[in-house]
Design a protein around this nucleic acid. Sequence first.
DNA 1: TCGGGATCATTGCGCATGCAACGAGTTTGC
DNA 2: GCAAACTCGTTGCATGCGCAATGATCCCGA
Lengths: 148, 148
Amino acid sequence: MRNDPDAFSLDAFLPYRLAVLASRVSRDLSGTYGERFGLSVPEWRVMAHLAEGSNVSVRDIEARVDMEKSKVSRAAKRLEKRGLLARRPHPTDKRLIALSLTDQGTSVFNQIVPLALSFESELKSRLTASDRDHLDRITDILLKGVTM
Amino acid sequence: MRNDPDAFSLDAFLPYRLAVLASRVSRDLSGTYGERFGLSVPEWRVMAHLAEGSNVSVRDIEARVDMEKSKVSRAAKRLEKRGLLARRPHPTDKRLIALSLTDQGTSVFNQIVPLALSFESELKSRLTASDRDHLDRITDILLKGVTM
DNA sequence: TCGGGATCATTGCGCATGCAACGAGTTTGC
DNA sequence: GCAAACTCGTTGCATGCGCAATGATCCCGA
């Protein structure tokens, strides 16, 4: 058994396993900040990127954060409406828009980071140190084998 | 550097890495069957589940396949409209609906399976045998650490 | 210098999604 | 035996999404 060439098991299929794992991890994680702060995943990602470096354009985020530019643009609009993000014209290139976190946005982000990191720690706590190294290395390899 | 306790790196954040990896793998994979057969991911998943065992209810799929029941219901509707799936009343429990692949649906599925498996093989070919074992084990562990 | 092509952010459109509500059917408890 | 609680699948609604088109701006070559 298990050698039937016609058998296809969704449960053993790597793309499916990755999709299920990622979506559940993401759901559990956003449960730790979503309820308290009312942030969606795209919004959280934009904030995380802006926290790493301010005055960034939409296309910078698009390139780094695996989101379509329209998704970035809309997430930024929602964040601006809530006062977490500021949108200013780029000094020299008028096509670009310099996005940055407001003080309030920075404050919210700083409250979320410990929650996110502790969630990650708990998740990783089930793995041995060696497993964690393997995981990092393997995801790197797989990411390289994939478009973009 | 890199030890700043306030630093948060999205790139190193496991939930983010998993989300990016899964979505890119999923996109590349559906490129191999989506164009040819016009199937979305939810539709493919429903078919894969029905191929494992016929006459299944919506809630069976919901439980096994990580999709909301409304998502399953609508995917089934689309598949039925294209003649790939049949929908019959359950013999004893009239609340349930027995879903199964039509002959045409089975034929389409059998054409896709080799494409999916070869995609998976190519992806895994970048990993050593030991890495693959680790990956399977690690995803199992992580899946157990997550809700549902 | 200036005109065509590229780049940037936004938006309109059609569609998929999640959630809650609903209607039909079934089980449970008394 | 029957009412209340539950289960199952569908659907209405608001929202977010991907994609292509748009307008504004910039770059580059002749």
